[in-house]
Design a protein around this nucleic acid. Structure first.
Length: 899
RNA sequence: AGGCACGUACGUCAAUGGUAGACGGCUUCCCUUACAAGGAAGAGGUUGGGGGUUCGAGUCCCUCCGUGCCUACCA
């Protein structure tokens, strides 16, 4: 058999994915058990414009681990893939392409432009899905969805119409967030607040008096240019300074308008001058105040952030920042600029293009959220669903956001997206319908024009868990896979996406869209900075795959703590690349000694007369299986990884293989040898199954090479499928197979061997040199354990002979050690031993033990402790103290003998 | 401005209120026929400072220092 010494991940990565896919392993239909429990996940649809980043790799890995695990547990398993049309981003990508050709989207016209976007999507969009194949993601490609698919678009129209008919969607004029660059309205969630160092300008507005008295009110503002649209100045009704001026008129400088002084509780008397200029058309708070006081709205800034005609001759057409300078200059000239101070404040910017948002009054479509919000809050209140992991702090983040939820601006002035299903007749009457035909029927005329706006991208995403399964039709998929089992995503879209899915899910399906929500940490760069394109500090997962292999990368990502941010550093993957190589070589050893062996479940049963190391590894295997399943179930992937890593490396490689070597590598063919080989390879096979959800490629690659693997090993739900490790049964860990006694006995043997190795290292005994071992053990049980395993101990401790007695009887010139359980071991070293050095070594150990004994003594002597602590805990300490005391006694005697 | 996290070995991170661990790195020895991406043995911590609750605190409470994140209508 020809197996290379070093694992080459690329080879395995190329070989298996396509085969799995062709065999239909990813589709739930592979499961032929009609009573199988169901497990389903919908992928957070990546943007068509996106390419894979580490955040995806992390989330996809966790989703795939869960999916593969549940599939191996016999669940009917669906992981549904798909993509989001990503309105603004996609439109921008294609617009930029056009720009390079010297064209704008308006040159093409709406229809041609959309055609072009579709072409782009088919040609270069969605590379991310190809990249997912490399990740090993076991998604069902036959159910792939796109938010602009006909089916999903139908769901969008259906939801829109129903909500409209219930009065939850309405059209109205409001102040909104406008991006002058993207030329569209944005929802509050798409606006990012950024701290900026700016100035606070103090402007004086003269009071119009009849007696010629010269008075003024000073207002403070960060945006002087908006003063051209002021229609009032507001003060707090309780503010003594201005009480007599409420109701008075002010002369608004640079214009010919008079504006009133009004009283409103919104005004904080402590801030600035206690007087606020009110610009209802260009500030959300002022807008509200304007509504309360019935103030006129003077629009002085337009959709391109240029000053309008209403701003006055001198300002018309100026950019808003130019206008700002000019207003300030004019105030200075007029002697009305009181002062300018440095001031840091936060401004609203467009999340995508970072342009400063301009609040504008505009007619848009809105969605009332109160009813759906209450549905979601009720679900959390009654059933505590969805269950967030980690629960702290996300459950609270989610609910407190819902409690403060406001109406959602759902229209966007874009071309790429779901066009709003509303039509207008010549009189401007609106007809909301599922199709133009339905609208015509409602209107009684064919002369209708559809609303040009499209819906917020998140509107269709909000329906994802049921629209992808066929809603509004009552499909089998919908009945089977809704609600989904778990949603895996980042914290940045809890509001944008998670909460909205819950709300629409409750509204239209009357059930939570997912039982659990796993919030992953953010992948940061090695300095703890967020990865971003502009900073160019992003890491391409494909580079990591090339460098270390997909499996190693997946394990490294799974090993990150639950919910905590991950400071990414390439070399963190190295240990897992090494781990993969370790697995490879362990399997290599098994395979090189596999003649006469075959994978066999019977070999894993405890039986009479099994050697200690066999009983032990079976116990460890079952314990590991149990712990891993529990960890995955609790979304503690790092614990699962740690458990598997140590089982495979420490238990299986370092001890079990070493202890099996003698039997397995025997030159003579024998039933005993075949038996040992079969057991070894069967344990390996189980270990590969346990590792498979995390490391799909290497486990499949090795599994296929094991002798005796066949369809017969598959989980019964997959009977008739082709042989692959991904359809075998996941080891559950049998509680009865956990053999505490075997684990204790083995621990004694390991302890003895380690002590001898320690002596050898400290005494500089060459590896090639065999030593004699004298073991003294008062307990008969222990003597039996050592006696039964002398061959093993001799091989691993490199001893020539071993004598086990009740009492240690060793020559003075020996190096000694005391084991737990009170046993002692001595290595006679005639002529080699430095007595002073040996005494010092043992004294050091004695001091350590004495300290611990003293601490335990004190704790046990404290009646408060023995009375209040649980009896189990107290006993544990007593036993430990007894053990230490025994060892101390033995040590003292040894030291005495060396004097 | 409020709210929420976090601070543990040289580095990156784990630890239901019960003996502080892992993986790199480091030191010494070994190319022992699965693996030098390996094996064996080690060194390294009064868990950011201070106070409190408790028989017992990395873990719970308070406070200070430092670092992140989120929310917000103070012009």
């Amino acid at each position: 058999m020809d197996i290379p010494k070093t694992y080459d991940p690329k080879q395995a990565e190329q070989r298996h994915y396509e085969r799995w896919e062709k065999a239909g392993c990813f589709a739930p239909e592979i499961n032929r058990d009609p009573h199988a429990p169901v497990f389903s996940i919908v992928i957070p649809p990546p943007n068509v414009t996106g390419s894979l980043h580490m955040g995806h790799a992390l989330q996809h890995t966790l989703m795939d681990v869960m999916t593969r695990h549940k599939r191996m547990c016999g669940y009917r398993t669906l992981w549904l893939p798909g993509q989001d049309h990503a309105g603004i981003s996609t439109q921008k990508v294609v617009s930029d392409q056009l720009e390079k050709e010297g064209l704008s989207r308006h040159d093409l016209g709406r229809e041609k432009f959309i055609e072009r976007v579709w072409r782009w999507r088919h040609e270069s969009g969605g590379q991310i899905l190809q990249q997912m194949r490399r990740e090993g993601a076991s998604v069902d490609w036959s159910r792939e969805r796109f938010t602009m698919d006909e089916g999903l678009s139908r769901a969008v129209r259906e939801v829109f119409v129903r909500l409209y008919e219930e009065g939850m969607i309405y059209r109205g004029e409001r102040i909104v967030n406008w991006c002058p660059n993207d030329q569209t309205v944005l929802s509050d969630l798409e606006v990012a607040k950024v701290a900026r160092a700016g100035k606070l300008y103090y402007l004086q507005y003269p009071v119009k008096t009849n007696d010629g008295e010269r008075r003024h009110i000073t207002v403070a503002t960060t945006r002087p240019e908006t003063m051209l649209g002021d229609t009032a100045v507001a003060v707090n009704p309780l503010d003594e300074r201005y009480r007599d001026l409420v109701g008075a008129k002010l002369i608004l400088p640079l214009t010919d308008r008079l504006i009133p002084v009004i009283a409103d509780e919104f005004v904080d008397p402590e801030f600035g001058t206690g007087a606020v200029k009110v610009t209802p058309a260009h500030d959300p708070n002022d807008y509200e105040m304007g509504v309360r006081h019935d103030l006129p709205q003077v629009v002085v800034i337009d959709q391109h952030a240029l000053m309008t005609e209403a701003a006055g001759k001198g300002f018309f057409g100026l950019d808003r920042y130019k206008a700002r300078e000019k207003v300030v200059e004019n105030f200075e000239t007029l002697g009305l600029l009181e002062k300018v101070i440095d001031y840091e404040f936060s401004i609203s910017t467009c999340e995508r293009c970072h342009q400063v948002i301009e609040p504008l009054i505009s007619t848009q479509w809105f969605c009332r959220m109160d009813e759906m919000r209450d549905l979601a809050l009720g679900l959390m209140g009654r059933e505590k669903k969805p269950r967030f992991s980690p629960e702290v702090p996300y459950e609270k983040v989610y609910t407190s956001w819902l409690e403060n939820l406001r109406d959602w601006t759902i229209s966007r002035q874009l071309w790429w997206g779901h066009q709003i299903p509303a039509w207008y007749d010549k009189e401007g009457n609106v007809y909301v319908a599922r199709s133009v035909e339905e609208a015509r029927a409602k209107a009684g005329t064919d002369e209708l024009e559809q609303d040009p706006d499209v819906l917020d991208t998140w509107f269709s995403s909000a329906l994802w868990p049921f629209s992808t399964l066929g809603w509004p039709d009552e499909t089998d998929d919908l009945k089977t896979y809704y609600p989904t089992s778990v949603l895996v995503t980042g914290r940045d879209i809890i509001f944008l996406w998670v909460s909205r899915m819950v709300m629409t899910g409750m509204k239209f399906m009357s059930e939570t869209p997912f039982h659990d929500v796993v919030i992953t940490g953010t992948v940061l760069d090695k300095h703890g900075q967020r990865m971003s394109k502009t900073k160019r500090n992003g890491v391409d997962p494909l580079d990591i795959f090339d460098k270390y292999g997909v499996d190693a990368t997946r394990v490294a990502l799974s090993a990150a703590g639950a919910g905590t941010d991950i400071r990414w550093n390439d070399n963190q993957v190295e240990p897992y690349r090494n781990f993969a190589n370790k697995i490879w070589n362990a399997a290599r050893f098994c395979l090189l000694n596999s003649e006469g062996a075959r994978v066999s479940p019977e070999a894993l049963r405890a039986a009479e007369g099994l050697a200690l190391h066999d009983r032990w590894i079976l116990s460890r295997l079952n314990r590991t299986a149990r712990d891993v399943s529990q960890a995955i179930g609790e979304y503690q992937f790092h614990e699962a990884v740690q458990t598997l890593y140590h089982f495979f490396w420490d238990d299986f490689c370092d001890w079990y293989i070493e202890l099996s070597k003698w039997d397995v590598t025997a030159e003579q063919t024998s039933a005993g040898r075949d038996c040992a080989r079969t057991r070894l390879i069967s344990v390996l096979e189980q270990a590969l199954r346990l590792l498979h959800p995390f490391m799909p490629y290497i486990t499949e690659e090795l599994w296929q090479r094991l002798p005796g693997v066949s369809e017969g090993l598959l989980h019964e739900a997959y009977g008739g499928s082709e042989a692959t490790i991904m359809l075998t049964a996941y080891p559950q860990g049998n509680r009865e197979a956990i053999d505490e006694r075997a684990e204790w006995e083995m621990q004694m043997v390991i302890d003895l061997i380690s002590r001898v190795r320690n002596i050898r290292a400290e005494m500089n005994i060459k590896p090639s040199e065999r030593v004699r071992l004298l073991v003294g053990a008062g307990e008969e049980k222990l003597r039996e354990v050592f006696a039964a395993n002398t061959d093993q101990i001799a091989r691993l401790a490199r001893a020539s002979e071993i004598t086990v007695r009740e009492r240690l009887d060793a020559p003075r010139a020996s190096a000694r050690a005391v084991l737990s359980g009170g046993a002692e071991v001595a290595v006679p070293l005639e002529g080699l031993i430095d007595f002073a050095q040996e005494r010092a070594r043992l004294e050091r150990e004695r001091d350590k033990l004495q300290k611990e004994a003293a601490r335990l003594d004190a704790q046990l002597a404290n009646p408060q402790f023995t009375e209040r602590a649980p009896a189990e805990k107290v006993n544990e300490l007593r036993e430990r103290l007894a053990d230490i005391t025994g060892r101390l006694r033995a040590l003292s005697e040894t030291l005495e003998a060396l004097r």
